[in-house]
Design a protein around this nucleic acid. Sequence first.
DNA 1: GACAATGTATACCGATCGGTTTATCTTGAT
DNA 2: ATCAAGATAAACCGATCGGTATACATTGTC
Lengths: 196, 196
Amino acid sequence: MVRSKNGEAALEPPKKLQIIEAAFSLFRKNGFYATGVDLIMQKAGVSKRTLYKYFPTKNDLIVAVLNHYRIVYEKYLNQILKQKDKTSRRKILEIFDDAEQWFEDINFHGCLAVNAMGEFSGKNQAIEDSCIRFKRWEIDILRSLTKDINSARADELAYKLFVLLEGMSSIAQVTKGACPFDMTAMANEIIERHTP
Amino acid sequence: MVRSKNGEAALEPPKKLQIIEAAFSLFRKNGFYATGVDLIMQKAGVSKRTLYKYFPTKNDLIVAVLNHYRIVYEKYLNQILKQKDKTSRRKILEIFDDAEQWFEDINFHGCLAVNAMGEFSGKNQAIEDSCIRFKRWEIDILRSLTKDINSARADELAYKLFVLLEGMSSIAQVTKGACPFDMTAMANEIIERHTP
DNA sequence: GACAATGTATACCGATCGGTTTATCTTGAT
DNA sequence: ATCAAGATAAACCGATCGGTATACATTGTC
């Protein structure tokens, strides 16, 4: 059984990833300050010593979680972006369609980077930088798509779509109600208006 | 000098308001969990006993601060809304103009209700309710103005403007950079498109 | 079977948290 | 001048925080 355990261990994520994923779900649900390291190590099934071996401070773990957040997002986006048979416009609308569903999920608690900035703004530069990088990356993705729609006004279109996405996210986080209007249709209108 | 002190005391806000205002600025800058009651009482120039007389728990103070946040916002909005010589459209654009300046301010840290929801979602019902009420109130104000522009589609127009406002707020909070596009012009475009 | 490495469990640390209590001082009304 | 009210300052409380240190169990390698 030792051998089989080893085989599994090679496939299952290492402890470091376990910790990040446990912290990720706890931070998202309960916030950063409100989540203690004891709870994280308990949920990760890992001792405190191991946790502090991989992450010398809690803030280091937070930075790692924010990076993980982007990687998870990236994996999802790549599934959409790699579809060769779809136009950039359709890809964008697909992103908005999925986002609309997320926002209606009872377990949606807003963008982790926005929440982190609300708790650590002016307090921890590394965390702030992570958040800023995340948002810049988000709009870069959108811009890479809007370039195919209207290369001359790609920046403007990407930014307008981004504002729509962020606005809906914030509103959904607070009001927790279903969107009173069709977000994807809104995105489609904006794209329509910027299509030459 | 005792008499002059008394005279001033009658005009200056009572201790309760001092506490709320001190907590307001601290919560906005440093977040809720990260701000201890000791710092609040120190900044308010008030003893701990007095603070706990007016607010039995810290969460009670947070709710009061969120209500205060709405009242401050309301006072500002009333200055705009009461101008009889301006159209509702101009009033909306004025709101967006001011918002754009706020967002570029170095001391802007996002919407307090959004930040509070990020820290207390699923933890404190009273705080959550305060945040939800705040957002509902915001969109109600917008709807009261869009009714004058297009009564048939007032809800839709108000919501679109609200999404724009919230989206810009979130983006500004994280990226801390100047808006790359003219937000008021965007609002104007939206209104234009919904004007019959 | 021995050994070093690694992980776990847990006790512990000082600091700080939200909140209470006590003791002192100021104040306004009589 | 006195006295009760209400404020302050500060000690204090138990709990929890992030983080460290210790003791024990498990593991792969030789």
